[in-house]
Amino acid sequence: MSSFISAGTANSDTSDQAIENNGFWPAIQPSDFRERHRLDGTITSARIEGALLTAVAMVNRLLRHWQAEQVEAGYPTVDDIPVPVWQTPGAYLGLYQRAVFSTAHASLMERYADYDATNSGRERGEQLADPADAYRRDAAWAISEIEGRPHSTVELI
C-alpha cells in the first residue's frame, strides 16, 4: 500500500527588502514580484534580489533616453507624466514593473535550469528556454509600449 503525502511548497520569505531605484522610477518590492509571478520560498531572497537588481539596471539602461526626455520636459518622476487620454492611469508604472519582473523571471528560469546537471536537468533546461524567451518578449513589449514604439522591428538582411 502506498500513499501520497504532500510536502507543500515553501513559504515565501517575508524579509525581502525593497530594491531602491533611481528616483524617477519607484522602488521595486520583491514581495510584489513573488506574488505576481507565483514564486514561493524555494527561491531564496538573495536570488530574488540579485535577479531584480540586474533587471532594474537593464530596464533602466534601455529606458534612459525616454526617461531623460521626460525629465527635460519637466516630469521628475514617472508619476508626474500626464497619461494620454487613451491610456489607463498608472500605465507607465505597470509597464515598467512588467518589464522588470519579466526580465527577472526569465533570468531565474535560466539559472534554475542548470540546477540539475543530469540528463533530465538538461532536458528540463531545454523545456524552460521557451518560457524564458516569452518572459523576455513580454519585457521587450512593455518597454516598447512605454516608448511608444511598435512591438516588432523588421530589418532587411
Rank of each mutant, 00 (worst) to 15 (best):
W25L: 04
G125D: 01
L39N: 10
P30H: 09
Q70C: 04
R124C: 00
G90V: 09
T153H: 14
L128C: 05
D133E: 15
A142S: 12
G90L: 13
L128G: 00
R98H: 11
S144D: 11
R149M: 06
Y96A: 07
Y115I: 03
R98Y: 07
E145N: 11
G74R: 08
H151A: 14
D79S: 07
A117E: 02
Q29M: 08
L93Y: 12
T44I: 05
S31R: 04
V100P: 05
T118S: 08
D130C: 01
H65R: 12
H37L: 09
I157N: 15
A113F: 02
D80M: 03
S15D: 15
P150I: 10
D79F: 06
T77W: 02
H37Y: 15
P30M: 03
S144I: 03
Q97P: 08
T153C: 11
D40A: 08
S45E: 14
D32A: 13
S2Q: 14
G50Y: 14
Y112S: 08
S120G: 02
R136G: 06
S12N: 13
S144E: 08
G41K: 10
A134D: 15
P89Q: 13
A106F: 02
V71P: 02
A132N: 08
N11M: 08
A68D: 06
W66T: 00
R36G: 14
A68Q: 04
H37G: 00
L108P: 08
D130T: 07
R38I: 07
N60A: 08
D138M: 15
S12E: 15
Q67F: 00
D116C: 01
S12R: 15
D13R: 13
A18K: 10
G74M: 04
N60M: 02
G94N: 14
L108K: 12
S120A: 10
L128A: 07
M58S: 13
P150M: 04
P150Q: 12
A129M: 10
M58L: 13
N60L: 01
N21Q: 04
T42F: 09
F4L: 14
L108N: 09
E69S: 06
M58Y: 09
L156T: 12
A139K: 06
V100S: 01
D138L: 15
Q29P: 09
W25S: 02
M109A: 01
H105Y: 11
T118A: 01
N21Y: 05
H37V: 04
E147A: 13
A18H: 07
Q70P: 04
G23D: 04
P150S: 12
H37K: 10
I28E: 06
N119E: 14
G23M: 10
F33D: 14
E123H: 00
R149N: 11
R136M: 04
A57L: 01
R64H: 06
I146G: 03
T88E: 14
R136K: 09
A55F: 05
T9I: 13
G8I: 10
A117C: 03
H105N: 06
A132H: 13
P89H: 14
E123S: 02
P76R: 06
D16F: 05
G74S: 03
Q127H: 05
I81D: 01
I157M: 13
D133K: 09
V83G: 05
R38M: 12
E126Y: 10
